[in-house]
Amino acid sequence: MTPPRTSSELSGAPAPSPARPRRWLLHTAVVGGLIALACSSHKTRTLEDVALESSDRFSSVLQGVVGDPDRAAAVGAVFATYQAEQQRFAADMADLKATALASYQAYDTTDEDFDALEEQLRSRREAFRDDIAGGIADLLAVLEPGEWTETVGLMLEEEARWKEANQ
């Protein structure tokens, strides 16, 4: 007597690979996080708050992909340094953006004023480029091959769901 066929056999779908349950767990965690974020959303949050929450999501997804608690902790520590840079930069940029907006709204602001502002912006963005590139290089150094790509892929899938939900 042959054993009963599984649903995947009946449907003709390929049998789940050993990695698939782990991937489904990660998907569940991502969706759960998304719902938690939706519930915690509040009208008074600033855009900076939103960005930093998103960075927190990246950190938790990354640690979920790594899996092993010791390595996940090490990766988390590297990511925390990178996040601290993001927070410092976001605060710095908030001041500059407030200045830019005030300049935009002032009738007498000259082209030279805007040129100076743009120069400041470029300088800060380039400083941040150096920080973020270094931070990602540090992260890649502590990850196994494929973990970074898997994390970015999961975040992009999360974004696709976000877009779909907000259309």
Binding site: L34, L37, A38, S41, H42, K43, L47, V50, A51, E53, S54, S55, R57, F58, M155, L156, E158, E159, W162, K163, A165, N166
Partner: peptide, 9 residues
Amino acid sequence: GSTTSFHQV
């Protein structure tokens, strides 16, 4: 009041 977008970073 919507949730975050990853791309808003």
